[in-house]
Lab assay of single mutants.
Amino acid sequence: MPSETPQAEVGPTGCPHRSGPHSAKGSLEKGSPEDKEAKEPLWIRPDAPSRCTWQLGRPASESPHHHTAPAKSPKILPDILKKIGDTPMVRINKIGKKFGLKCELLAKCEFFNAGGSVKDRISLRMIEDAERDGTLKPGDTIIEPTSGNTGIGLALAAAVRGYRCIIVMPEKMSSEKVDVLRALGAEIVRTPTNARFDSPESHVGVAWRLKNEIPNSHILDQYRNASNPLAHYDTTADEILQQCDGKLDMLVASVGTGGTITGIARKLKEKCPGCRIIGVDPEGSILAEPEELNQTEQTTYEVEGIGYDFIPTVLDRTVVDKWFKSNDEEAFTFARMLIAQEGLLCGGSAGSTVAVAVKAAQELQEGQRCVVILPDSVRNYMTKFLSDRWMLQKGFLKEEDLTEKKPWWWHLRVQELGLSAPLTVLPTITCGHTIEILREKGFDQAPVVDEAGVILGMVTLGNMLSSLLAGKVQPSDQVGKVIYKQFKQIRLTDTLGRLSHILEMDHFALVV
């Protein structure tokens, strides 16, 4: 994948999101292997301009796509893939009243899908469409860049269908997702969380590099694949309309690839034109409109599966009536509230959605109805927002919020430890010299600072030695090549209790 991002070429006709291997024109390309080798690009942008032909009021008969309808489940399912879809609609009884809503608040519980998330729908649909058009064949390999849930859905379907599955996901995604993927037989590649989507090191860039190296491999490409919004247009939206008897006044959905909100909203605009569509985008993402909503100094966020630093091709923002931004604290607070007060075992993005819903639905009156999409299960986040310690460490809970008995030293300040200034190293000294210094002084790690004293990161003896043994660096290389740029900081005025929580999850903390 090139470091400079080429513009994806656009073909003359058809839909841009065809499933299957992508040609340089962004659509299915038939021909000899030699032709494909000559024409197939190194990668295709996940934010390529959409060429979708959908228009409100256009006859369904003019759609270029294969459409399906929700099917009634048999008493005995032939395999677990038949437990994807037909998820329950559940009334939220307490939270709406707590925040003064007059309307009825309903939750579409997508964590009841077989793999635990709304992404099971698009995973199965992308595979079925690729099999139907002859792209996927027995023994082929599926590769997908994902925040985890699409990966789980694909790995689940691949396990049943017999495909090899490789999932490329950023490091910030939970260990629970990784464990589930491994249990399903998927191979996992992790990428830096802070890598831009168009960087060769991003999950998108690495996935395309693997595709170019592995024979008979395919990126189904949830960011561009029409099967993504079509899955929701054909099934999720129809289920909502049936469950609500066609009567709903507002739908609120958090947005990642945009397939969920695009597919549902398009069908609702056709069948229930008075329904307002509300999009939820986390602070630090750029999906919301108008652009002024996205202006923030924050560039990272903890909530998973929603928000991006690019506009995915499948996201149709014209069908969203209003956007709201959400933050991590309210997302996790509301997710825990949904679990504790409503018994809905949902993930953090569901918290984002409901946090926005109780604001947006203030305009609705008694007798009206708001539906929220709860995308995934708490299963993926047992060591994250479900953990009091994690919430404390991230600053989303305060010590006084917890009532468990603490040891005698818990409320003492870090400054009472009488710490001395640490050994520091410059980023320009060599790895070999740094190892000598650390061994001589008896230290395992040291902060790396520039000549102005600005902290650049941390270097550890173990990481340097393993990097040297693996051949990633040489003793003569500058130590700046092996620094940890993500590390926890703590102030002298913070409590030892807070430091204790940090050290339970990290090997060190830097006192500043």
Rank of each mutant, 00 (worst) to 15 (best):
I76M: 15
P200H: 13
T191H: 01
D234R: 06
H17E: 09
G134R: 14
Y233I: 01
R18A: 13
I143A: 03
L230I: 09
W43D: 01
M173F: 03
A183M: 07
R266Q: 07
H66A: 07
E144Y: 04
V204S: 05
L42T: 06
R190N: 08
H203P: 06
R266I: 15
A38F: 15
I152R: 01
E62W: 05
Y223F: 07
K211F: 08
K39H: 03
H65C: 01
N225C: 01
I76A: 06
S19C: 01
I240L: 01
P64C: 05
K25C: 12
L105S: 01
L154I: 05
F112E: 08
G246A: 01
A24F: 14
R190E: 01
N93T: 11
L136H: 01
I214K: 03
S61M: 03
D86L: 05
L105Y: 04
S175F: 10
P64M: 10
G139M: 06
I76T: 04
L106D: 01
P192C: 08
C272I: 07
K271P: 05
E270M: 05
S3A: 09
S175T: 15
G258S: 11
P33F: 01
K36L: 13
R209A: 08
I44V: 11
E110Y: 10
I92A: 03
Q243G: 01
G153C: 06
D79A: 04
A195P: 01
D120R: 01
R58I: 08
H65I: 05
N228P: 01
K211V: 14
G205P: 09
A226F: 01
L156W: 15
L77Y: 06
A159D: 05
I167T: 10
C272Y: 09
D249C: 01
K36F: 11
R125D: 12
P46S: 07
V255P: 06
N228L: 01
I127V: 10
L230Y: 14
I143G: 05
V10A: 08
F112D: 05
E176R: 01
D79L: 06
H17V: 13
F197Y: 01
A107S: 06
K269V: 01
T260S: 08
T5S: 11
V255C: 15
T235Y: 13
L220N: 01
A38L: 14
S61I: 06
T235G: 09
I264T: 10
F112H: 01
K108L: 03
A157S: 13
Q7A: 09
H22D: 08
K39Y: 01
S202P: 08
S227Y: 15
N93M: 01
G153A: 01
P49V: 10
I143R: 03
E104R: 03
R91N: 12
S61A: 10
V180D: 01
E128W: 08
L251K: 01
I127R: 01
R45V: 07
D245G: 14
E104I: 01
M250G: 01
D234N: 11
P138E: 07
N113E: 05
K271H: 14
I95H: 01
T87F: 01
E213M: 14
K172S: 05
D129E: 14
I76L: 11
Q242V: 09
K247M: 12
P70F: 05
T135G: 01
G148F: 06
V10P: 07
H203A: 11
S123W: 06
P200A: 08
K267P: 01
H203M: 07
E201A: 03
K97W: 01
P41T: 11
L106W: 11
A253P: 01
P59C: 14
S32V: 08
E128I: 14
Q222W: 01
A183V: 06
P145R: 01
R121Y: 05
V10E: 07
D234F: 07
P88V: 06
P229Y: 10
Q242I: 14
P273F: 03
R121G: 04
K25Y: 06
H67L: 10
W208E: 07
E34A: 08
I264V: 12
I76V: 04
D221H: 06
S123T: 06
R266L: 01
E270N: 04
I264A: 04
P33T: 07
Q242K: 15
P138T: 12
N93D: 11
A231I: 09
R164Q: 04
A69I: 05
N149E: 03
N113D: 05
R164D: 01
G185E: 09
P6L: 12
A69S: 05
E144C: 06
P2V: 08
I80G: 10
L210G: 08
C275G: 06
E213G: 12
Q243V: 07
G31K: 15
D245V: 08
D35W: 01
K83T: 09
A158C: 01
L42I: 14
A195C: 13
A157Y: 09
I166A: 01
R266F: 08
S63A: 12
G116D: 11
Y233V: 01
S217H: 01
T53P: 01
P74M: 13
